[in-house]
């Protein structure tokens, strides 16, 4: 089973990287960009029997830092 884990900064946590990218987009002449937040996408290939609880534990223990980040798990159907 393919699983995608999206990790991003919690609302309210300043994202200097996002701000720099935002600034660069404006510099390239793109208008109407209100905000940019940079996150991380982690793709896992796990056994079909892997439980939601196990995936949550992977995120909380290692893949995300719960002090500053949120995560979202997206399961893709096996091919």
């Amino acid at each position: 089973m393919k699983v995608r884990i999206f990790v991003n900064l919690k609302p309210g946590v300043l994202d200097p990287q996002g701000r720099a990218v935002h600034h660069a987009l404006e510099g390239l002449g793109f208008e109407g960009v209100a905000d940019v937040r940079v996150g991380r996408l982690i793709e896992l290939d796990v056994a079909d029997s892997t439980t939601d609880e196990a995936l949550d534990e992977m995120c909380r223990k290692l893949l995300a830092n719960m002090v500053i980040e949120n995560y979202r798990v997206e399961k893709l159907e096996s091919a």
Partner: peptide, 17 residues
Amino acid sequence: LTEAGLLPGALMRNAGQ
């Protein structure tokens, strides 16, 4: 130490990048 939970908080990218 922060990642191990021995100290609170986190160290993020420097504000000036």
